[in-house]
Design a protein around this nucleic acid. Structure first.
Lengths: 273, 273
DNA sequence: TAATCTAACAACGA
DNA sequence: CTCGTTGTTAGATT
């Protein structure tokens, strides 16, 4: 559920709250979430501390002193909460990291979360993350880069933007308004767009994600400290607004099936033909 | 067009005709057929001689003294003809190998043929050939091997047998009678077959290919010396006999589309349901 | 509502 | 009649 704005927010907060504090222990209550036996977590990370927290697409990469990295995926929704020294922890969680000073964090996965431990050598080859593409909030995600990425692809625009091997970090929430703002139908083939449309797409992608990040991310996704973001349902233009009027032309917003997911669009502003 | 019987026949004949005779030159008239500049062919193979000719699926592998190998694919049809010393050569061909004694061979590709040169180090990693599976005329292609290969696959029987990564060497000609002889519909799912049917399939695959090889291959595919094989259209049971009576039950043979290829079958002997 | 891997299948190009 | 690449879909997963 969390997409780039929420992931970026969480990475930043995790770095500021955890950096340089030695880890005392790691509790793995759900073995399926991880890639190594729970027992070896302790051996490998005890005494190490978080140096840097970055994102790779929707994954969060916590680089530790000593060369190990923690790879965190929120799957289809998760609460990742910091707790200060002595502060109560949530009752339910699958994994917990406790620091020497008694503070730490828990992760509660709603569905399909992952919490992996990889060595420096394994990091670049880790199958879940190695093929994830650059994200639109990266400074190197330029117009030229996007243009060559989109060049000649026959796939549908929505598939393209959600394909994590091509564009990192977009999920099925921000996509609706991104496409609406560029006036492109989700099922239009990329190779059928003219350059103006591709350019509009580029600016909508970056603009929407950056705007939400500036507002603190989606309000229904609490941050590391349990606070809601400032980007709310009221900000949605067509997303999840089936039957309501298009904010531009007043036409009723449509909800359609696109593969296994839903899409929301204005049939007048985003014609397919 | 050539399948395992024709390929095996050609490999055997090439070995017997070419072995131990030094190569004088290689002529590449169609650069698209090959993987190295035509000029470097001469440098790399001059003076070497063919040691052994084998097949890997439908590919022919000519191992030369000195460690280089020639990889030959007939694509969708090709004439590969030997010429004795002083003997006239075909007028049209894309590649030609001439030996020091004046004999040699030409290859005329009708569509998509390949004539590659690889070093000993490259041979195992050559992308076109490295994932080709064992073929049914290999002595190690046992019932146990086939059974474990087929185990649990949900794919259609025809797709399975034509998938070169799983079974090497079968194409869209012998497949029709192979399936008819085992009374299996091409679109039946492999996992829906009982063991008797899988066993019947195993024996039909080996039996048909071996039978054709023993007859000298398909009559419409001339061999290295331009001779026709002894396996003719009269040998077809249901293949290419749309509308004609099934040789077993008299029902009219059907032609259906299976993906991009055609299939011929007896709807009574090979029921789908 | 949401994410990703996999196998199988279709369309296309060389 | 070939085969690799790309993209789509259905099914699976905790």
């Amino acid at each position: 559920m969390a997409e780039l704005p929420e992931i970026k927010r969480l990475a930043r907060q995790m770095e500021e709250a955890l950096r340089d504090k030695p880890i005392r222990r790691v509790e793995i209550l759900q073995e399926k979430c991880t890639n190594v036996p729970p027992a070896s977590w302790g051996e490998r990370v005890r005494g190490a501390s978080v140096q840097q927290v970055q994102n790779k697409g929707k994954w969060i990469v916590l680089a530790l002193t000593g060369g190990e990295s923690i790879l965190l995926s929120l799957g289809m929704g998760a609460d990742v909460f910091y707790h200060r020294t002595g502060e109560a922890r949530p009752e339910k969680y699958q994994v917990r990291v406790e620091l020497e000073d008694g503070s730490g964090f828990t992760a509660r996965f709603w569905w399909f979360g992952s919490f992996l431990l990889v060595s420096r050598q394994e990091l670049g080859e880790e199958p879940n993350t190695k093929n994830i593409a650059m994200d639109p909030l990266d400074a190197r995600f330029t117009w030229e880069y996007f243009q060559s990425l989109a060049q000649g692809r026959r796939t549908q625009v929505k598939s393209f933007l959600l394909n994590q091997k091509l564009v990192g970090g977009i999920g099925n929430m921000y996509i609706h308004d991104i496409l609406f703002l560029s006036r492109v139908h989700p099922q239009k083939k990329l190779c059928d767009l003219n350059e103006k449309e591709v350019e509009a797409l580029y600016h909508s992608v970056r603009g929407q994600l950056e705007m939400s990040l500036n507002k603190g991310g989606f309000s229904r996704e609490p941050d590391f400290y349990g606070e809601a973001g400032g980007y709310t349902e009221k900000d949605f233009l067509v997303g999840y607004r089936a039957g309501k009027p298009c904010p531009v032309c007043g036409e009723a917003v449509e909800q359609i099936k696109t593969g296994s997911t839903s899409s929301y669009l204005c049939p007048a502003c985003q014609p397919l033909g």
